[in-house]
Structure formats: structure tokens, C-alpha cells
Design a protein around this nucleic acid. Structure first.
Lengths: 359, 359
DNA sequence: TTGTATGCGTTATCAC
DNA sequence: GTGATAACGCATACAA
């Protein structure tokens, strides 16, 4: 009832939520007691606790995050850093899956997820500044080729950080989660060898991305184990068009190929195009294995045999690990690697009508 | 009943970020002057400004967001609310595109995007509480069937809010951006009529989603304009499987259909399955039009003619509108509707080899 | 167990 | 232009 003053100099700000003071008054206790009751309820009598609880409900009290953050020096928020969101990142369900997983891990906490996407180098330094500024309690970085600099920079700040996907210079200090790209590449080789293919090639990803490099290494391991020669390797940029071009070269130079491993389903699509354009049947003439178990693997003209990985689980784990690292700084947990599996579809299935098996 | 703060993070190690006080000392001015120099530099002498600027660089000063927020009552962050992130939301590029667009709109500001995903009703009320708590300056809500309650609830809080996709109870108060679903449905009808199809049916989306309803209304308008009867309508849930089942019924009950409009590409995929299973060729026997210009539209067994919409633009606009609304509250801009276009592919192209044209 | 007093880093107010 | 000084809302040693 302050309507009496003639002309309040200061406009009464649009009455936001009730303050801790209001809460205390309503509950008939002091600010401190109210505060304690709200946070864990340690050292507060059952009566006081009950009174405060009721007042919270009555007033619809919500703590002011800024004020709390100012004194506790924590922000109750973590950042998801996505460097260079190019077309590939956008088209992959990867992006959405990561967010879902992290959100899931955060569900029972009051921690908020803030998104940091840096497209340009300029953005990149801005993002880094933001992270160093103590605006978040920790960060999850979706790693790829640019991530090496991120790893170093963040390690220096001491900000709790988890990488999704092994960063290039993963020392013992950086902690990350990843899928077993080595094992995945190996699986592809084993499978193609297992169905009797002998002249194998691969369309690998960019040589500056750990996931691509690991898949290629795994592939070579698998070939060696099967007693097969290394075979031709071409690189593409994880896009359909790029892979199609690479595959055309591959087919032209090695017309006798009978099996191809593409390091992503999107690339496998391009390989499929190139094969059909060259008059090759799949899997009749050439068996094809993709990677990711992307949605297109199922809807492709020839459904793709592919490598699947538990991406949601991985993202959830990343979130959980970050929370842990924030609560208990200094503990540097071991990297967690999730195993992969092969999903068999038409692109390698030796259909009863087909002609394969030329061992 | 437990009250707030599910599980706050523990206090993080004290960081020694330089404070405004430090900055002022280093620059040889008072806190007030330093503050002014930092924010716009109004009413500060060139000398003082220069001194502060140098000190900022020297010390690597970064303003404490919490402290600033506490006094300005601004959080410099906005929320993206995604109710019920079900499978459909995740698989659509829609999700990623929206985030990219908003981020783009925020690029030149220091506004951060925080993600609010509410999967359950429980989450939903938590999210609402968060929004009302003044933790963000505004919100963008990805609208769908549950959005009606959101629209009402948020309108009451007075929090600047933009909906992406028209909410059900869009009164004059709620502002939103959307694509012209009416026009899109109409385009589909016009196109199918234009290539001589006469017995047309549609697999519509859920009747409780504005996008689905609008597309259906547009479709009917288009049919009427072409002098064609309304034709059969079946509803599905925007999933491939659901649409396949619906299409099987449709084909069984109306075997003479020669054109189908599916209200999404994912559903068109299901229709395609059903048609092939029924021994119908596409586009020979039945021409098919999808919606969204989803990635699968291009990779489908028969590439889909579909309706495309400028989703990125729309998301960018939503972000820009929200910023505007935050700066100048009370201005209630008109909804912005983006027009759609038809992309022609094999599923309706009267291939030279085909048999169509039965007018 | 409870309350008092203080400080977190910034912006806003108002004399100078 | 500039600089004291008072909030902003909360948590927490410390005293009671």
C-alpha cells in the first residue's frame, strides 16, 4: 500500500517473483532460516521447515539465480560447445541426439544447458572468452577436427570439460567419451571378408578427424586379420557428393573391387550412386557397408548394412561425467568408449537370387 | 512435498577473475567511470575511455554476468522451449535448423540461448516455473499440439515470447512465425490436378496440430479451385509406419486413386511402401506429393515431389523478433508467414516411359 | 536451532 | 564528466 507517495522517483519495476525476504516474513522466520530451509534444510527445525515450505507454495517463490550465483560463485549451468556447425553436423541426427542425451543427464538437477555454437574463428574466441569468464560451471565439447585447439585452451582454464569424441591431442588430462571407431572399422572388414569378398576398398573420412582416422585404422586391422591386402583408400569429406566423386575415381582405377566400406552412411549413399552409374549392382557386384546407422541407411535405394553406435548413451554419460567432475574437481576419470555393432541389411546380404561368392 | 533446488552443484574452486574494482584501479578511475566506459561509453572523457579500454585488455576483464544481471534485472539469455521431444521432433532436421537459425539471430548480441526440453508433464511445470522465475528475458516455443496451454500460461506471465508454428489458441496477443501451410496444401492439390490426376486422396497429419490442419484445409481449397471433389482423407501421426498403415486402408477402400498428398515426407515414405506392396507404380499408377523437403525426399526409392519451406529464415526471424520484443516490450508485431514452394521430383514427374495422363 | 551482519560484482542515483 | 553510495537477492561465518 504505497500508493500515497506523490511521485515515486523510481518506477516500481514490474513486480517479479517474491524475494527471500518476502518468504521469510510470510513464514515468520529470518532470511537465514528461510535460506537454510530452501537449501537442503540442514539445521532447521521441522516447524520452521514446514512453515517455509508452505510459504514457498503460497508465494510461488523461486530463488533468484543471479543473486545466488553471485554469492555461491556457481552458475548452475553448463555449456555445450559445437564448433563450426557445418552442413554435416546439421544433417546428422548426432546433433539432436547429443542434446537429448545431455538433457537427460541433467534432468534431476537444476542445471541448465546453454548452447554455444561458433561458426567462425571470430565466434570461436568469443566462445572461449565466455567459457573462461566463469559463466558456466563446465563444458561439453563436441569434438572434431578443430577440437585440438579447444582441448588445449580449455585445459588451461581449468574449467571442467568433457569431450564427446576423442580430441586430437588427448593427453591424460582431457577426459572424453567416444565410440569404438577402431572396432567399428574392424567390424566392417570382418563382415565383408566373412561374406567372401576379397578385393576390398574404403572411402574414408577426412584425415584430420579422429573418428575418420580410427575407423580407417580399424578397417586395416580387420583386413590384416582376415589375411587380405590393404586395398585402395580414398578420402572424402563425409558428404554424399564428396563420396560420390571419390567413389567414381575408385571404381575407375580399380574396376575389380567387390566390396566397399564407406566411413559414414551419407557417404555410402554417394558410393551407391557412383556404383549404379557405373553399372554395378549392390550387393551383387559390390557389397557396401556404411557407418552410423543413420536414418537414410534404412531408406536408401538399397538399404545399407552399417555400423551402429549407442550415441544417446554416450551423450548421457558425457553429461553425467561432467556433473561428477564439477562436484569433485581434480578427479580425472578414464575415457569411456562405447562398443559398436554391425547391422546387416540388403547392401551386403547375399540374396538367394544373387551371384556373389567368388572365392 | 519437497520444494525447489533438486540438486545444486557444489561450489567450484574460487576463480580469480579481475573485478570491476581491479579494472578501475588499473585504469586510474572510479568504479562508476569504469562501468560507464564499459557500457556504451556515455558521458566519459576520451582519456578515461582509453585508459579503461587498455586496462580491459591488460587484465582480460570480463564482467560478471550474475552481478550485472542482479541489478539490471536482465539475464541476457533467452530460452528455447521444446515441449515433448518425441521421436518425430528428433528425426526431423527441424530441430537442428531451428537452433541454428536462432543462434544466427543472436550472433551479434551477447545473448545466450538456453535449452529447455520438457518430456513429461512434470518437466513441463518445472519448465514453466523456470520461465516465470525471470531466469530468461524471453522465450521461443516450438509449437505443436500441446502448445495451447503454453501459449496461455506464457501470455499470463508477460514474458516476451515468440512461437514457431502457430499455436492453437493464437489470439491477437501471441506472436508467432510460421510457414504457409495453407498455401502448401493448396500447392500440392494444384500440382496433382495440373498433371491430370483426378481421383485424389490425402494422408493428413494429426487433427490436433495446426500445421496438419492447415495443410488439409489448403489441400481442400486447392481441390475445390480445380473443380475436383474432396476425395478421401485419412489421418496419421506424421510417422512412416503410421502413414503406411493408413495408406493401406486408403488403397483398399479406394482402389481407383491416382494421386496422393502426404502431409510430410516421412509419411510419404510410408505411403510409398503401401503403394508398392499393393502393386501400384509411382508415379505411373499413383502420383505422390510429400511435404517438408526432408532429406529422405531425395533419397527415397522414388524421389519425392514435395513442398519446401524456408525453415532457417523462419527461425532467424523468430530470434530477431524476440530480441525486438525484449527491447521494446508492448509492441505486438504481426505474425510472419513464410511462403512455400513445390519441388518437383520423380514421384509426380510424367516420365516419358510411363503410362499416365488419363484425362 | 536461530538470527545478525556482511559481502558477492555490478549498475543506477545523485550530488559534486 | 566524475565519483561516492545505495541497492539488487542471496548465502554464510559468527554470535546468540
Amino acid at each position: 500500500m504505497k500508493t500515497s507517495s506523490p511521485r515515486p522517483l523510481r518506477q516500481v519495476a514490474p513486480r517479479s517473483s517474491p524475494t527471500l525476504e518476502d518468504l521469510a516474513v510470510a513464514a515468520g522466520v529470518s532470511r537465514s532460516t528461510a535460506s537454510r530451509a530452501i537449501n537442503g534444510g540442514d539445521r532447521v527445525s521441522p516447524e520452521a521447515q514446514a512453515a517455509v515450505d508452505r510459504a514457498v507454495l503460497d508465494l510461488g517463490y523461486i530463488p533468484n539465480r543471479a543473486a545466488r550465483s553471485l554469492v555461491t560463485r556457481r552458475t548452475s549451468s553448463i555449456a555445450l560447445v559445437i564448433p563450426e556447425p557445418d552442413v554435416r553436423v546439421m544433417m546428422d541426427p548426432f546433433f539432436a541426439v547429443v542434446i537429448t542425451g545431455i538433457t537427460e543427464a541433467l534432468r534431476e538437477t537444476d542445471v541448465q544447458l546453454v548452447l554455444l555454437m561458433s561458426r567462425t574463428d571470430d565466434d570461436s574466441s568469443r566462445t572461449l572468452r565466455y567459457l573462461r569468464g566463469g559463466h558456466v560451471d563446465g563444458a561439453i565439447v563436441v569434438s572434431h577436427h578443430e577440437a585440438d585447439s579447444w582441448a588445449r585452451s580449455l585445459a588451461e582454464t581449468g574449467l571442467p570439460t568433457i569431450f564427446i569424441g576423442r580430441p586430437w591431442d588427448a593427453g591424460s588430462e582431457v577426459t572424453y567419451v567416444d565410440t569404438d571407431n577402431l572396432g567399428g572399422g574392424r567390424l566392417a572388414a570382418q563382415h565383408l571378408a566373412g561374406i567372401g569378398r576379397r578385393r576390398l576398398a574404403t572411402v574414408a573420412g577426412p584425415a584430420d578427424m579422429t573418428a575418420a582416422v580410427d575407423r580407417l585404422r580399424g578397417w586395416r586391422t580387420g583386413l590384416a586379420e582376415a589375411g587380405l591386402p590393404e586395398g585402395p583408400v580414398v578420402h572424402a569429406d563425409f558428404t554424399t557428393d564428396g563420396a560420390a566423386a571419390a567413389a567414381r575415381r575408385l571404381i575407375a582405377e580399380h574396376p575389380d573391387i567387390d566390396g566397399i566400406f564407406a566411413a559414414s552412411d551419407l557417404m555410402a549413399l554417394g558410393v551407391l550412386e557412383a556404383l549404379q552409374a557405373a553399372g554395378r549392382t549392390v550387393p551383387g557386384d559390390v557389397a557396401l557397408v556404411g557407418y552410423d546407422n543413420h536414418a537414410v541407411a534404412e531408406t536408401a535405394p538399397t538399404p545399407l548394412t552399417t555400423i551402429t553406435q549407442p550415441m544417446v548413451e554416450m551423450a548421457v554419460k558425457a553429461g553425467a561425467m561432467l556433473l561428477e567432475e564439477i562436484e569433485a574437481p581434480g578427479s580425472h576419470p578414464e575415457p569411456v568408449i562405447y562398443s559398436t555393432e554391425l547391422v546387416e541389411r540388403a547392401s551386403t546380404s547375399v540374396a538367394p537370387t544373387a551371384s556373389a561368392a567368388n572365392a
